[in-house]
Design a protein around this nucleic acid. Sequence first.
DNA 1: CCAGCGAGCGTGACCGGTCACGCTGTCGCT
DNA 2: AGCGACAGCGTGACCGGTCACGCTCGCTGG
Lengths: 325, 325
Amino acid sequence: MHDVAARAGVSHQTVSRVLNGFESVRPVTRDRVLAAITELGYRRNLAARTLATNRSRAIGVLAPAVSEYGPTSTVQAIEVAARAAGYHPLVTSTTSDRESILASLGFLLDQAVEALVVIAPQQRVLVAIDELELTVPIMTLQSLRVDSATAISVDQARGARRAVQHLIVLGHRRIQHLSGPEELFEATARREAYQAAMVDAGLAALPVIVGDWTAEAGMRAATAIEPDATAVFSGNDQMALGLISGLAALGRRVPEDVSVIGFDDVPEARFYLPALTTVRQDFETIGRVAIESLIRQVEGREAIAVAPLEPELIVRASTAAPRSG
Amino acid sequence: MHDVAARAGVSHQTVSRVLNGFESVRPVTRDRVLAAITELGYRRNLAARTLATNRSRAIGVLAPAVSEYGPTSTVQAIEVAARAAGYHPLVTSTTSDRESILASLGFLLDQAVEALVVIAPQQRVLVAIDELELTVPIMTLQSLRVDSATAISVDQARGARRAVQHLIVLGHRRIQHLSGPEELFEATARREAYQAAMVDAGLAALPVIVGDWTAEAGMRAATAIEPDATAVFSGNDQMALGLISGLAALGRRVPEDVSVIGFDDVPEARFYLPALTTVRQDFETIGRVAIESLIRQVEGREAIAVAPLEPELIVRASTAAPRSG
DNA sequence: CCAGCGAGCGTGACCGGTCACGCTGTCGCT
DNA sequence: AGCGACAGCGTGACCGGTCACGCTCGCTGG
């Protein structure tokens, strides 16, 4: 910056003013400075700036280390929203063990992030956050906390209810649930909503099969479902895919013998065979809204309370009326 | 740091020594400092450190803004490898337009990254990099540059050849190729290898259908393939899925009427119906090796030249001998 | 005619670390 | 005993920006 100032024949302060778009610089001076900047290929040193202003303009993102559709598309929405608002998104992925969570959190803290968005929807992450007594505003995604000011999510219970009711309306009575990992909030919410929906309809909830979100787990579940179950509500689309594949291997056809409904609506879901009936979550809006709220808080305004988003039932070909009504 | 020093009754320099693990501090002093650190909840200011040392220990990652399996799993491998080596991975996703590429690159430059790994396999990105005349070591992934010191990739041509030859060995003669976007190196490499493999076998290469990697494009391609084609080599798994789905809608069955082979081996591929024959790429190794090589360069040693990785043919149920040989 | 004001720009301190160097005291060696 | 070496720690400059403040000069109004 000193070099730029010398070349433009001004002080370093004037260079700073130009860089930060202050008004009180004559256009002719400004142009001289800008010319010097391009000639020297100057880039301002962000570390020095952060140090002097005590502001990093960085927003930390704690994401699970998976390549699933939901988290990745949420992260991308966060990135564009943050960048559009002039902030730097700092994304770290973490596995679910405590050590990894603390390491990622530590990294973000070292980077002096001004806000934090947490997508890893587990109790362990929330515990770690509470322990560290962070002072920056935090937004947890899909954590299903009641506090709508610091949490935002798709209404999991509502989505699960819609899925189950769709099956009930089709005439199914023996409906089983293939759940995600027990420690995940989303999985728990869907599981409980399944059970509640069954009870509300005067039906008996069948034993829940627990998977790990992978298609592999869905395939294994095919051998575990009750013989007389006519429909399965899968906790996500990947498991639904594996389940359908596993059922096919057992000679059971979807939807003729068993109806299967998923959750998420991944881009490939409509191309599965049969095309998957599922519940769509708007991951992109979640990420965008989270950033908007956080930036409000960073800038001193109050957080915006956001109601849980409405999931949408997408009916395709993997569900049908049971054969013997 | 001043507060910590005061509380421990030492100078700031000694605190710095403890923080950086220098030997020449008595254990008793070290413990006093560490105690003061934890009592005050002190975290060192990374911006100040970066400013003083003129080292950021950050590695920039330029990734495409997609939620596809390949890039995301590569990015994750990069993250763990970088962190394990004591570096900070800074991941930015970019769309394919020039403006977005330059913005992401600018962001990484502002962060003073010491090395750069580029996963966006397009000409445009390489052009932008050349224009900026970056001085940091760069590693391009899947860019298929001949220079093995700055590029690393799975051998696309070899993988494509294996796919085509697999179909030929099964007895197919009319084999068509469903390609990815023309501006992508990987797509180009697979397309050319397809054509070469056909010619080598004394067969006529059929017109190439161009898609955009999405299952949607695969479905559309179902109506575009030659009536007498008995097999299709799809540029990736998603398009293969869409193609199979589209063929099913037209009453053509896989593999009885048409064989389909994909590329990538996404985790779900073995659960598609039929289970997808495909070519596996080791995305994880790509990312890991790239970081290893970059860190060597950052630390003053020469880059390691890595031969293109061997792709692996995974035969499943979506390919079979043609009905009428 | 001059005080007052504001546009336009410069000066020096400061952010929180690291680095080079300097100082003190203890120990071993001659 | 005297000296050098080294362990152990402190001092001040410096990294490259920003911020508060001050200066100069031209213009305006009484």
